[in-house]
Every structure is written in C-alpha cells, then in structure tokens.
Design a protein around this nucleic acid. Structure first.
Lengths: 344, 344
DNA sequence: CGTATGCGTGCATACGTATGCATGCATCTT
DNA sequence: AAGATGCATGCATACGTATGCACGCATACG
C-alpha cells in the first residue's frame, strides 16, 4: 500500500516555545492567563510568545487539553429525532448558547428507543463531556444516576417527572395546558363528545391525556373507551386515528391530538372524507409547529416554546458547569398557551 | 467554597490490568485485538482481562485514545441552519451512517455567514476530527485547502462548484432542474411572463437562476429586470417578493421560487391579495419539503433528495477515513425531479 | 547439550497540555 | 554586607492510551 501518510504535523506548544525561546510551560501560562491567575509573566515574554503563536498559526489542541484538564468543551445532547419539528428550535438554541461559551454540541437521536437511550449514556462514559442535555423517554433517574455517580457530569433534562436530586428540569406544563384546552372546547365551543389521539407509552401523551380527562370529568362528560385512539406522533397516524373516529357509530364533534403533526394529519383526513373543519369536527393540536399557522384551516393549538426551553436548559447546564450553581435540582416551567385559530 | 469536588475517578485500563494481574499494555492488546493483529495473546489472559473489564464496567476513554492514536471517532458537519427543513434529513442520515461506524457527529450552523464558516474550519484545527462534511456558501477551495494541508483531514462537500482536488462532492443538478422546470412551464403550461425569486449572493440561487434564464432565452422569451426579486430563503421573504411582483404594471403569470419556503410564502401572499393559484398566478418551488405536499394548492416543485445526499456524503467520507478510497475528488449527482402538483 | 525459533508479556515512551515545585536572579531589609 | 523576599521562568510529571522493543520461557533443531 503506497498510501502516502500525512507528513504534516500539527503545530504544538513546543514549536511555539522554541520559536519564542521559552519553555513549553511558559507558553501554556501565557495562553491561559486569567485575571486572577497567581502566576505572573513579563510583558516581554508575553509579547514574544504571542508573536510566535501568530507566526506559526498555533491553535491549542482540545483533545490534549481535555485529557489533561478534564475540560472537554463539549456538550452531549440526546433528543428523540432531529427531523421532528419540535426539536429544531430547541437544538438550535442550545447550540447558540453553547457557541457563546465556546462549546461544541454532540447530538444523538434516540428514536424513542430504550436501547438507543442507554447507548447514549454509555457513550458519555467513553467520551467524557462537560455537560449533558437529555429528552428522556424510557431511561429513568436510576440510569442517569449511574452515569452521574461515575462521571460526575452535570445533567439537565426536558420533562416534568424525572425525579433525580441533581438533574435540573425544564418543562411545559402540558397537563394543565391540555386541561385548559379541553375546558375551552367545552365551555366556549360547546362540545360534549371529544376524542383524544394519544401515543401509548410516552410520558407527554399520558400527562396530556390526564389533563384532558380531568376537564371532561369536571364537566360531567364521559369519555368512551373508543374515543381514545393510538398514534405515533406522525401525520399518517393522525389520519388513521381520525378515520377510525369518524367511522364510529356516534363520532366525536371535536378531537384533541397530542401533537400538531397528528392534528394536521387528522384535518387532511377529515377533508378527504368530505367533512369540514371545524363545522363537522373541530381539531386542536399541541406544539404550535410553524406549519400549524399555514395549513387551512389554520390550526388551533396549545403552543410550546422549544426555543425558550433550549435556552433555559443550556443556561442551567452552564451554571453548573461553571460552578455558578451547585445546589439541588431546579425545575423551570415554560408555560404553554392556547392559540385560537380556525380549526376549533 | 465548599464545592465538593467529584471524588470518583474513571475506571482505567490500569485498574483492569491490576485486577486481571497483567500489564496495562496487555489489556490494550486484548481489547484492540483485530483479526490481522500480529500480536498473539493466550486464551487464558484474554479470559481474565475480559472478566476484569466486565467486573469493573470498564469503558475505554476516547479522549485518551484520540490523543494517542490520532483517531477521534468524530465527524464535524457544517450546515447553514439546522432549523431549515432541507437539512433535517441530511443531518439525520449522516448521523445514522456515522452511528453505524460508531462515530459521533458535531454539528455547526453557519447561518450563511462567512465569519461563522471560517470559524468552523478553525474549530477543526483545535479539535481534530476524523472527517468533515460541509455545506459551503462562502468559503472556497483555498480555505479548505489550508485546513487539509494542515491536518490532512478528509473533507466532503455538498454543492457543485467546489473545485478542490481531494474534496468529494455530492450535488443535485439544480441548474438543469430549474431549466427543465421553466421549460415545462413554458411548453406544457403556456406561460410567457415568468418571474424568479432569488437569494442574492448564494451559489444555489445563482445556478438556478442561470437554468431559468437559459430556458427563457431558448424559448425566445424576455426576463425583465424587475421580474427577478430578492429574498432570503424565508417564507416571509417569499410573500414580500410576491406582493411586489403582483403590484407591477404587467405582473407575471408564473413565479419560480428558488426554494419551497419562499414558494409557500408567495402562495399565501397571493391568497391574501385575493388571487387564485394557479389560475391567476402559478408557483413552482424547489426542494419538496414535507409541507409542500400538504399546503393548498399542493406545491408543484423540483424535488431534491437530502436523505440520499446525506447518506452519500457520509459514505464517501468513510471510504476515505477507512482508507478504502484515496484517489482524486469524486462528484456524485443526486438527480432532481419535477413533481407536478396543483400550484402550477 | 547448546543454540535458534516462536510465542506471550512487560517496559518504556509518546501523543499535547496544565500545573506543583524548584530555581535563579534582582531587589529590599536590617 | 548578608540574609530575606518576590518575581519570572524552567523542570518534571500526570492525564489514559497504543505500540516498538526487549525479554523470558518453552520447544525444536543440529
């Protein structure tokens, strides 16, 4: 194999040191000089080192720095699926905050899969990072605690019921939001037969279903078993659920979908079945994805604010990373809000 | 500051070695055993090492491995904006391919900003990675060559006019696609006054404009200066451009937008102005984002296949990383396709 | 029986950086 | 003038891993 190996060698601190006529440790000190640094360096030396750095185009090697200093300048983030619109803004804003702190972000997709979530945690043992952001679906406080015990890495999470003593949380109060949304459908719109499209086995769906049922119960309304249909967060699933609902003996007059994509799927399906939204059936979604305001009829939905969530998650994480906060787990609520458009 | 420092220390190879009663180097050999490995280890030792690994729950430290072995198990990827629907599938598929190779992916957003693109390249000098995927807007072959000269890292790029001798490329032939799309508007739909919504200063828009103009020229049609309006890839910009076009003395009967979001914005704006699409004005987009098939009228567009692009980019990159290919730059075309729906 | 061969391991070192400690020199104190 | 102080810098080492080299032992060979 003739494979010409790369001959080029990275410029190292020692190269800088040689050129500047000082030792490698002096270079290190010049470059890491902080205001409160105890060690003093002469102006002359600083000048020479900086010149040499510029002349050689030296950049510190973060791998070496990580190994030595236990600081990786890396965040790891686990979400369910990067191609789900809900996470874009969250990811985007986490990246922006990280970037301000000169951090890079490693992103993992779990696909709502327990195995993948576990694998993500293992990955962090292999490749140490300074902080972790997770959107947990299956793993629990115990799993994360094993990681924390072992690495001491700060962790923050999205969601409301992740009871770990040192994992900060950001959550939208979706149970209350769905409660209020259902209440609004009943009181303001006069609906009495309301269905719910769930995603079995996921916490958010379960919480929202709880809020929905509470509103119904308090209004003295019954939710027949067949009014709760399963989906999987996708447009197609929303369509399927809607068709099943509309084919019932006595179909509902309103449908609460546990996310916008399924709500959009329902509306499309209703149209295909020759019905009018909201006259024949009203639809309400959850998330307020950009598309919600553009479809016809525009979607009435319970808005979440993933950008704000991303920012808050990242900020709480950096407070811990930088030692500005070191107390017990905090929980920060990003409120949801009912956005009334035309679909209900 | 009472700040209890983490006492826990990571489990290292030496711990495993001690428990197994062998040396650290032996552990290393056992764990990195490959079929063609020249060094042989006794079955007994292998057994003891593996037991110790399991008992201690040892995971190799990738940081240390990187520093020593020059393999980071990391890819860096630079795109314009993770919240742009076009990149989701690309990112997603790159991540999936990477994950199969046990690689992690660092993602950076350039926001179409030259400074950010430069900064990304610098970042790679600081934190070595095994491979780089870029969607360049401003940086050119020279910038990347500096990086390659210095680090020897393999680089692949999305786009068609990035003339570097060792940077593989994946591209959709969008110039030809737009050419054919415009031709179709003229021949099949009989349009003669067609406008174009561009994004000044970006290569893709420039190429598509070129294709568009060529089709017009060959049909003997004129494109007045005011028929080419600027935008910025966003929905709002598409709306603004459409309004300006419709307020012209003699407005066009068809509009080619250089991406779907602007096309969607145009349609919404046309409706707001009381016009019907495609009767009053036809609209054709570019990309085929998921929403294109869901808006009304459904968008006629030139489809790109970002998933396929992501897969191909990642695969070509791994061929270089793993030494399976070491030749001159390759170019792989992922064809675009006209998808006729209702907006034109 | 003495030397060559081959197999399995350990020793030592390097990757690039950060930092405790020691050192040398100049200035200050008494 | 001799010792004490402070400042600026170098030396040595550690982070966890991979690997060239040498070594010890057993077997084979002449």
């Amino acid at each position: 194999m003739i494979r010409q190996k790369n001959v080029q060698r990275a410029v190292t601190m020692r190269d800088v040191a040689n050129l500047a006529g000082v030792s490698q440790s002096t270079v290190s000190r010049v470059l890491n000089q902080t205001a409160d640094s105890a060690v003093l360096i002469s102006e002359d030396t600083i000048q020479r080192v900086n010149d040499a750095v510029k002349q050689l185009g030296y950049y510190p090697n973060l791998t070496a720095r990580s190994l030595r200093g236990q600081k990786t300048q890396l965040l790891a983030m686990m979400i369910a699926d990067i191609s789900n619109p809900f996470y874009h803004y969250m990811v985007r804003n986490v990246q922006d905050v990280a970037s301000k702190h000169h951090y890079d972000v490693l992103i993992s997709n779990s696909d709502h899969n327990r195995q993948n979530e576990r694998h993500f945690l293992e990955g962090i043992i292999r490749r140490p990072v300074d902080g972790v952001i997770i959107v947990p679906y299956h793993i629990d406080a115990g799993d994360v605690d094993a990681l924390i015990q072992r690495t001491g890495v700060p962790v923050v999470a999205l969601g409301t019921n992740f009871g770990h003593a040192s994992v900060d949380q950001v959550f939208g109060d979706d149970e209350r939001a769905t409660y209020e949304g259902a209440q609004w459908l009943i009181r303001e719109r006069g609906h009495r037969r309301i269905a719910y499209i769930e995603v079995p086995g996921t916490h958010p769906s379960r919480r929202r279903l709880r809020g929905f049922k509470r509103a119904m119960r308090e209004a003295g309304l019954h939710v027949p078993h067949e009014y709760v249909r399963p989906g999987d967060f996708s447009i197609e699933a929303g369509g399927r659920a809607m068709r099943e609902l509309m084919q019932l003996q006595t179909p509902p007059t309103a449908v609460v979908a546990c996310n916008d994509l399924m709500a959009i799927g329902s509306i499309t399906m209703a149209h295909e079945m020759g019905m009018t939204v909201p006259a024949d059936v009203a639809v309400i979604g959850f998330d307020d994805v950009p598309e919600a305001s553009r479809i016809r009829p525009a979607l009435t939905t319970l808005a979440q604010y993933p950008s704000a969530m991303g920012v808050k998650l990242a900020e709480m994480l950096f407070e811990r990373i930088e030692g500005r906060y070191d107390g017990p787990a905090r929980a920060f609520e990003v409120p949801c809000r009912l956005i009334v458009r035309q679909s209900a």
